[in-house]
């Protein structure tokens, strides 16, 4: 009995933990939003009828998309250079990307408070070189949140993509050169298409991470730039409106899972190495 099901027994504790404390509670959160109030979808009707909340959802999408696009571009180009760098330099560059990644979200967001604040480094610098007479209000804008988020996610993108680029065999690049393709053509016709699945994976990581973030928008956006994460916290812990918080949670879960499923499918279809 035990012997035949040994695999099950070994996997049981971890499976139980996930089912009991993740699946059931999250299902409970999602379930609590249905059949609440008038009509089965009342909390959602409520959410989408509020101009403010629509604005929050929209802003969160904007910030996440901008963060994804910028860190994708910076990350890919940087990763390309890193992957082609001589070995010693490469390990230094990788360490320099890993270090911020392992430093906490709060610490890294906090750094931008010092930089972008009214008496911050950037304003002092601009005042000193005479670009402006008045400090700019850079904090608590959509821009400040995006800058900090890009800062947060670019290292992740670089590391993901260095891995992807290093998996492209050198032989393919040499084959391309031997057939007469210049380095530019090789990049466009061989390296980039082969990196697309990796780019999609990186983009999904960054998008879902930004979409559900809390600390960075809280520190750099505050109440002025409320996003889904901060709104959810406010609903749950300030207004004690748990149905509203659960509704926001459900929207986050649905969007996250939909994007992950959709994009991993797209990435799989575009991945020629898999077939």
């Amino acid at each position: 009995m035990l012997k035949r099901h040994i695999g099950w027994w070994l996997a049981l504790p971890a499976t139980l933990l996930v089912v009991l404390f993740l699946v059931l509670p999250v299902a409970g959160t999602i379930g609590s939003t249905f059949g609440e109030g008038a009509g089965p979808f009342a909390p959602y009707v409520n959410f989408f009828s509020s101009g403010f909340r629509r604005r929050v959802l929209w802003r969160t999408l904007e910030i996440s998309l901008a963060t994804t696009a910028i860190s994708l571009l910076l990350g890919f180009l940087t990763a390309y250079v890193v992957s082609r760098a001589p070995r010693n330099l490469k390990s230094i560059l990788i360490i320099a990307a890993v270090f911020p990644l392992l430093t906490g979200v709060v610490v890294r967001s906090f750094a931008w408070l010092i930089i972008l604040g009214k008496n911050g480094i950037l304003n002092n610098l601009l005042l000193a070189i005479g670009v402006t007479d008045e400090p700019f209000a850079m904090l608590y804008t959509q821009g400040s949140v995006i800058v900090a988020m890009v800062y947060l996610f670019t290292p992740l993108m670089i590391l993901t993509l260095v891995g992807v680029l290093e998996n492209i065999p050198d032989d393919l690049i040499q084959a391309s050169a031997s057939l007469g393709a210049s380095p530019g053509s090789t990049f466009r016709q061989v390296v980039f298409p082969l990196a697309v699945p990796g780019l999609i994976v990186g983009a999904v990581l960054v998008f879902t991470g930004s979409f559900t973030s809390y600390a960075t928008p809280q520190l750099l956006g505050g109440e002025k730039q409320m996003v889904m994460g901060t709104l959810m916290y406010q609903q749950a812990m300030v207004n004690f409106d748990w149905i509203s918080a659960s509704t926001i949670a459900t929207i986050m879960v649905v969007i996250t899972i939909a994007i992950v499923l959709l994009m991993t499918r797209v990435a799989k279809r575009l991945n020629p190495m898999a077939t």
Binding site: V18, G28, T29, W242, A249, M252, T256, V260
Partner: peptide
């Protein structure tokens, strides 16, 4: 599906996990 179970903690946003644990547990 068993291996999918262990992907769930990544798939479910952390903030949702925290809130759900508060509510249910």
């Amino acid at each position: 599906w068993l291996s999918t179970v262990f992907v769930l903690p990544i798939l479910v946003p952390e903030i949702v996990l925290g809130f759900s644990l508060l509510k249910s547990v």
